[in-house]
Design a protein around this nucleic acid. Sequence first.
DNA 1: TTAGGGCTATTG
DNA 2: CAATAGCCCTAA
Length: 758
Amino acid sequence: MEPRIQSLLLDDNFTIDNQLPFPLGPFAQHHQSQHTHNHSSHQHGSRPSPVEPSAPRPASFSLHDIYNPNAKDSHHHATFAGRQLSASSRPPPSPPSTSLTHEQHTQHNHPGASSSQPAARPPKSVPLAEVLNGHEQTSSGFSGSVNELLDNSGSAPGNNSPKKRRKVDGSGMGDQNIFTLPKPTLPVKKGARRPRIPPLLQGLHQPPPNAGLFPPITGERVAREGCPPPPPPPPATTKNAMTQQQKQKSTSTPAPRVEPRAPEKVTPIESKRLSPVQDGGKAPPKSTASDAAAASSAKPSAKTQKAEPSKRRKKWTEEETTTLLKGVAKFGIGNWKKILDCPEFSFDGRTAVDLKDRFRTCCPDEYRKMKKPKAGGTELDATAGASEASTAETASGKQVSSLVTSNILLPGPSNGPVRKRRGPKVHRKDSQALASIGIEAPFTKSTRRERREFTEQEDAALLRGFEKHGPHWHVIRNDPDLELTHRHPTDLRDRLRNRWPEKYAEAGYKIKLKEKNNKQENQDDAGAGPSAPESSEDKEPSKRMFLQDDNAMLTANVAPHVNPIGMTRKKAPGLKSLLTNYPFPDPFTEDDDFTSDLPFEGECSPVILSRDIFSYAQGQPNAFDLSVNSHADHSHINPLDTLKIPKTSSTTQQPHSSTSLPPLWLPAPLTAGLSSNLGSNMLLASSSAPSSRCIATAASTSTAGGGNSGTVSLPGPADLLMGLDLEGKNDGHSSNFIWEDTTPSRQLFDGRLNEEEA
DNA sequence: TTAGGGCTATTG
DNA sequence: CAATAGCCCTAA
C-alpha cells in the first residue's frame, strides 16, 4: 500500500476524534485504535483495496452507539444522555426501524453523523469516507472493497443487492469484533408505517429504486394446495352460469354491475379465500373459468362489498338452489365458503352468507338440526323424508314445536305450518326434490361448535381473569376461580376482543379492522376538540392513536402537570383505561414505529420517549420521586429513572380506573420472552432462581447513567424476577429494549403488587 | 399456546 | 343484506 494512503488513513483517525460531534466511548476508541492497527497490518497484505473493510466500523459503531440508548457500554449510555440533553445537538433522526437492514444502518449512520448537526457543522463522516476511500475511488467503479460497499451508498453497485439488504437477522450480532447495529426485531406488520424521515435523509432511508426486496407482484394465482388444476369449464357449471347470466341479462340486471367486479377476480382476497377449499382433499378440481366465475360472484365478500353501494336482491334460481344443495351434500351444512369456492358449483354473485340464508330458507329443518344436534344425540343421521319430523323433534325440541317440520322436507307445502308465511313455500326442498337432484344421503353436519352467548358472569370472570393474568388465555381458562373452563382459550380472547376492544388494544394487540374503525370513530368524536389538531391528518387506525395516547399517558405519568416540551397533548379518551391496563407504550408494535413522528420541523412528537424524557428531565430534575441524583449532573439522568412512574398510592395525578387494577402482567408485546405461566406462586417461587441476563442488563442499565446513588428504587430481586423468562428466551438486543421499556411498568406493577399484598 | 384474521350464525 | 359476535384456522 502506498505510504500516501497510509498517512491518509492515519490522518483519518484524527479526523474522527476531532470532528465527531461527540466523544467516542472508550470502546469505540479502542476499536479505532484497532482499526488503525488493522490498517497498518493490512498494508502488507495483498488486498488491493486501499481500505480495510472494517475501517469505518469504529465510526459506525460509535455513531450507532450514541444513537442507541441501549448500548451495552454504560459510558456510551451516559454520553448519549448527555448529548441528548444538549440543546444544540439534534438527536438522531431515527432509531433503526424494522425495514432497515444492518447494511442500511451502517449506511445511514454515516449521513446520520452529519444530520445530527445539520446546520452547524459540515458532514463529519463524509470526509472520513472520502479520505478512506480516496476521491478517485468514489468516482471510479467498484473497487472490491467492502468499505466501499458499506460507505459509498450511492456508488457501489453491490449496495443495491437485495441479498445484502435482506441480511437482517443479525447474523453478525454475535460477533463481538464486529459492531453491528442492533436491529430491533420489530415485527413488520401490514399496516406498519414507514418512519418519517427528515427531508435531508429521505432518500437515504428509501430502498434504491432497483432494490429487489420483493418478488414482483404478478397476477398469478397462488398455487392452491389440494386443489388440482381444474379442467376447463365444467359443463354443468358453465351451463349454470350461462343460464344465470342470460337470465340476469334478460331480467335487466345492469351489466355494469357485474362487469366491474370481474376485474377484481384475481386478487389476493380470492386466493386467500380459496385456500380453505382444500379441506382434506375433498375439494374437487377447479376450473379456472368456473373458478373465476365463482370468484367474481363470490368476490363481494363482506369486506369488498362494503365499499360498494347496496347489492341488488337477486332471486335464487332453481339451478342455483340445486347447486347449493349439491354443495351442501358434498361439504356439509355450514361449510358455505367451501361450497362457494368449489369450482364444481357456481353461484351468481352469492356470498357465503347468501348460501347459508338460502339453505336455511329452503331446508330450514335440516338447518336447525345442524344447529342443535345434541338433544337427540344424533348428528344428522336422520334420513331425509318422513323420518325427518320425528328426528327433528328430538333434535331441536322447542323449535320443532313451533314449526311443523314435516312440512319442510315432506312433499308439498300443504302441511299446515304454524308460522305465518308470506306464501307457499315453493322454495322448500323436500326429500323427493333432494332425491331428484341426486341427494339421497342426509346432509352432513357442520363440526362447528354450538354458539353460546357469553353471560354476564362469564364476562365478569373474563375481565377479572384478564386483569389478573393478562392475555394468557389458557391461564384464565384454567383458573378455577373464574369458572371459564367451558370456554376455549381463544373464545376468551375473542370475547375480550369483541366486547372490550379497547382493553384488547391497550394491551398492545391488534384489533380487528371493524373494531379499529369503530374506535377510530369514537376517538374522532372524542378528539374533535381543539386539542386534537392532528387527528384529521392521521388516517391511521386506532392503533396509532392508542400509541399516541400511550405516550401522552406516559408523559402524564411522568409529570401530569407539566407539558414537557410544549407538545400538544392529545385529548385522550383512553387515558384512564390506558393506565389501568397498559401503563407503558410498546414501541414495537404495529404502527408504533417511534421513528415515525420525529419532531422535525417543529413538530413535537409524543412518540419519542427517550428524547422527551431527556428534555423534560433536564428541566424537571426533581419533578418526581425518583430522587434524581443528588450528585449527578442532569446531563446524566438515566432515562429509566426519568421514566419511572409514580406509584399509584403516592400520587393522585395518575389517571386511574376505579374499576380495575393495573394488570399483573406485562403488555403482550413485551412479554414475548416471558413465561407463559404467570401464576404468582410460580413466579415468586422462581424468584430465588439465579438472575438472568435480562436482569443484569436491567440493573446495569438502570444504574449506568444515574450513578449508584440510589437513583432508582429498583424492585427487589424477587420482583425483578417476576415474570421473567428465566430460561433466557430473551436474547440480544431485544432484551435491552424490553427492559428499557418494561422497567417502568415493572415498577408500576410492583407498586400495585405491594398495594395488593398490603 | 397465542395472535391475527377469516368464516359463520344470529339478528334486525 | 348489513352488522355483530362467536367460532375456526393457521402461522409463529
